[in-house]
Design a protein around this nucleic acid. Sequence first.
DNA 1: AAAGATTTGTCCGTATGTATG
DNA 2: ACATACATACGGACAAATCTT
Lengths: 250, 250
Amino acid sequence: MTVAKTAVRKTVERQTGVALWRQIADRIRLAISNGDYDTTGMVPPETALAQEFGVNRHTVRSALAALADEGLVRAVQGRGTLIERKERVTYQISRRTRFSQGLGRQVKEIGSRLLGHDQVPASGEIATALGLAPGALLVELHTVSSGDGRPLSAAVSYFPADRFPRMAEEYARLGSVTKVFSAHGLDDYVRASTEIVARHADAEELALLELSPGAIVLEAHAVNADLEGRPVEFSRTRFAADRMKLRIET
Amino acid sequence: MTVAKTAVRKTVERQTGVALWRQIADRIRLAISNGDYDTTGMVPPETALAQEFGVNRHTVRSALAALADEGLVRAVQGRGTLIERKERVTYQISRRTRFSQGLGRQVKEIGSRLLGHDQVPASGEIATALGLAPGALLVELHTVSSGDGRPLSAAVSYFPADRFPRMAEEYARLGSVTKVFSAHGLDDYVRASTEIVARHADAEELALLELSPGAIVLEAHAVNADLEGRPVEFSRTRFAADRMKLRIET
DNA sequence: AAAGATTTGTCCGTATGTATG
DNA sequence: ACATACATACGGACAAATCTT
């Protein structure tokens, strides 16, 4: 191919504060989720991986041990390293985005846990997004959602308290924002806008999403509105980036 | 908030393959982009940071040195460590997404560099996305785009060779896919779908986007189609995550 | 069934990077 | 700048489990 030659190392980088075994674990995880090893259902032999990445076999073993610890692969002596789980869950963003709905076909069991709730005054970005005067009362929900036992996202959601006074209690009972909206007489709503940023997870997110340090989160700020265009929800959702893919239909 | 005085390193962890200085650099970078230090425009003193994170001052110095190397902060003897503030550029994704258009209002100067081009047979995901039989000829473009001299994205784009035979040459001349489409008689097109994944940058991306090791890229796979719904472009764009925000209008 | 090849598991030692004081 | 402790990475050798011939 006619590409200008750049002095690019095809191998992993050293002395960067990120251990080689972790960089290699990241690359193998990506290859697995890309389906690169689907023909065999196994990771290539340690010696082959060591050669591919230009490192010692021990280093590859450290990487595979980390992936085994995540439950992504399982090593069997004499046979190889089997892939246990490869799928990234796709989260679809469209005008009719519903959290649980799209996920239902991809995982057997969806979990929604309410970590806590509060009443807070609107301010700044949230007040603007919801079209409220600063100081208007909001219901704040902290939730974690998981698929087949693996945490997928941690969210903080805000709702106008005057319109959805029983939000927290109903959510604890129903486990779905869509159902609580229904219980408050709002039968339909649409996604107005979504903003997405990627960054390293902070300590709280590492704990909530059961991630290891250096992990990445996709943070989405979303506004949902009723059919008259009045905003009904502002949410800040942190997705575990290595377990999720976002799909946007336009 | 009430925090225990002996906050013993709840925030950073050891033996995880990520050096403490890098974990701390990540946290300071996040705090800067959150605007936590906006009142002073400076990072707190090294001793304060060392105490906050429960690490030795040497470790904090390593973290700050890394951030200075990125150009995010500048240490001045006797004064402190000054923040060189940089805003995230917003990239808007909608049915009418045009790369250069939305960026124009946010940066003074947009740069588009053609790294190379090739003719390749369609296969796998790309053939599917473009609705072509495997083996159909494609034009492949490698490009890097920047705003005010900072690299923002690196893309590999594919176009049906029979419909856009002069794609590579015209792009080199016009510097915009939209203009080349026009030159081939395609006056309008729409974004059909976009899939987004976040991951660590590989060695090639670190070089192309001038990132430091451990940096994050947002990878978007997009399909553009003409008004009859026939796909005209498949692109795989890697955005420098710490310089970009994606906005989705639905 | 036996032998050899392949692949993961474990042990030794050495050099360098990271973190503290 | 120095000293100390631990994590990371490398190299080699061999054992144990599995598959192929």
